[in-house]
Simulated assay, not measured.
Amino acid sequence: MTDTVRFQIPGYIRPPLSLNDRRGHWAPRHRTTQTLRAIAATLTRQETRARRVRVMPPVVIDLVWVVTDNRHRDTDNPVLTRKPLVDGVCDVLGFPDHWRNVSGGVRIEKGATAGIWVEIRPAATSGEATA
C-alpha cells in the first residue's frame, strides 16, 4: 500500500466519545462504540474496494478531527473515539490491532467544514508501528 486512504465519519462534527465523559450509564457509550465500529468497517470496505488497495500491516491509523475555529482542544480526549474506529478498520483489513500492526493517534486540523476523518497510511520504514 502506497496510498493514504481517508474517509469521513458521517453524522459527527466532533468526537462522540471523550475521556471527559465520566458520568452516565454504560449502555449509551456501548451503542456509540458499536455504531462507530460498524461505520468504520463499512467505509473501510468501500474505500479499499473503490481504490483497489490492499492494506498490509504495519499501518498508521489516525483520527483526524477537523475544526473550524482556533479554540484549544486536547488531543487526548478523542482517544475513546479512535479505538472503535481502529477496531472496525482492522476487522475489515483482517489483522489484529496490536502494537506491531497499528500505530497512530489523534490529530486536530483547521478546515472549512468540521468533521471526523479516519486516515490509514503505511507505516514509515523507520519502525513507526514496529517497535
Rank of each mutant, 00 (worst) to 15 (best):
Y12D: 04
A38K: 13
L36P: 01
R71A: 14
N70D: 15
V86W: 02
G104I: 07
D76Y: 12
G111H: 10
I116T: 01
S18F: 04
V118H: 06
P78N: 07
H25S: 14
T2C: 03
R22Y: 09
R6S: 14
R45Y: 11
I13D: 14
D3N: 10
A27Q: 14
L17A: 10
V86K: 04
V92Y: 01
T75K: 14
P16L: 13
L63V: 12
W117T: 02
R82L: 15
T48H: 03
R52S: 13
H30C: 08
A38G: 09
R54D: 10
L93W: 03
V64F: 09
A114N: 02
P57H: 03
V106P: 02
E119K: 14
L80H: 10
W117P: 02
A50Q: 14
D69A: 06
G111R: 06
A129N: 05
D76E: 10
M1F: 11
D97S: 15
H30L: 15
R54Q: 12
G88T: 07
N101V: 06
R6E: 15
W26S: 15
F95D: 04
V53E: 13
R82I: 02
T125W: 03
A112L: 11
R14T: 14
W99L: 14
V67R: 12
A131H: 11
I13N: 10
R49P: 00
D91Y: 08
A123D: 05
R100Y: 11
V59L: 08
K110Q: 15
P57K: 06
P28L: 09
D69Y: 08
R29W: 00
Q46H: 10
L36Y: 04
R73P: 03
Q46P: 00
D91Q: 12
T130E: 12
P96K: 11
D76L: 15
E109L: 14
A50H: 11
D69P: 01
R22W: 07
I120Y: 02
W117Y: 15
T2F: 11
A124Q: 10
A41T: 03
L80T: 02
D97E: 07
N70C: 06
D91M: 06
T68V: 14
G94W: 03
V60C: 12
S126G: 13
L43P: 00
T4S: 12
T48W: 01
N20S: 13
A129T: 05
G115Q: 05
D62Y: 03
I116V: 15
G24H: 08
S126P: 00
W99K: 15
T125M: 09
P57E: 03
T68L: 09
L85K: 03
R22E: 10
V64I: 15
A123Y: 01
E109V: 12
N77H: 13
V55P: 07
I61A: 07
P96F: 08
T75E: 12
E128L: 05
V118L: 10
I13P: 00
I9P: 03
H25P: 06
V67W: 02
I61K: 07
V118M: 11
R121S: 07
W99Q: 13
R100K: 13
T113H: 12
G127D: 10
R22K: 15
F7P: 04
T81F: 08
H25D: 14
V89I: 09
T2I: 09
D97K: 09
A124I: 04
C90F: 01
A27M: 13
T2E: 13
T4W: 00
T125K: 07
A129W: 00
Q34Y: 01
T42K: 13
P58E: 06
V59G: 07
R6D: 08
A112V: 08
D3W: 00
D87W: 11
G111P: 06
